[in-house]
Design a binder for these strands. Structure first.
Lengths: 107, 107
DNA sequence: TCTATATACCTCACCTGTCAAGGTATATAT
DNA sequence: ATATATACCTTGACAGGTGAGGTATATAGA
């Protein structure tokens, strides 16, 4: 009982930003934790995740830096910016509005 | 304070089907009534509406027939099929699931 | 008479986010 | 040696939404 990509489209960015509010993290972990949070009902596909990172960084909502792993695969950590926090609040309001509108239309 | 197209993507079909549950209707009217229901917060764009009609008819979720206007512009009426009603119930569950998942991820 | 507005339909080209499929590299367990 | 897990990334195709454009009927106002 998974979720189709079309109903989630446009929510990828707020999902990532929300996660980064809890602290810096890296792609692989963000992906895993989103799956865990939703009991495997929703999985952000890797390609979707990384293209979203590019967009978010371009828009200066997040910044990135390489972790200093001395062992194992390298990690690129992401950090939410203050602009990112502001935009996240708007995304959150958008989601509340969307819910209200769709609850009106889908009965 | 409108709604972006990406967050609505994938909800066009359930919105139309939900409306047709109330009775047969035609494009122009469906559009107007959706605007009214949402206090002009959401407007289904015409191009979106008509391409959705094509998809829904192709999938046999709706059927269409010409109204018998003897005056004024012709109208093409749409009617939801029983298959359409079934699929609508699935769409509705999808929406409930989407809400639950996004409420978990967007705090 | 001409123009604007409302009703009512429709199509096409473009844009954008998603994702399957492919790739690279490190480390550990069998 | 091989498989699996971790961790990163890009590319090309796809599909739904939409701006812009078109057609036709009817009415109200200048």
């Amino acid at each position: 009982m998974s979720i189709t990509s079309d109903v989630i489209r446009g929510h990828t960015e707020p999902i990532i930003l929300a996660h980064l509010l809890e602290g810096d993290s890296y792609g692989y972990q963000i992906n895993k934790e989103i799956m865990e949070k939703t009991n495997n009902l929703y999985e952000l596909k890797e390609a979707t995740l990384y293209t979203a990172f590019r967009r978010l960084e371009q828009a200066q909502l997040i910044t990135s830096y390489w972790g200093d792993q001395e062992v194992g695969a390298r990690r690129r950590y992401y950090s939410i910016t203050s602009k990112g926090r502001d935009v996240y609040q708007e995304y959150k309001k958008d989601w509340e509005n969307t819910k209200a509108i769709l609850d009106t239309l889908i009965k």
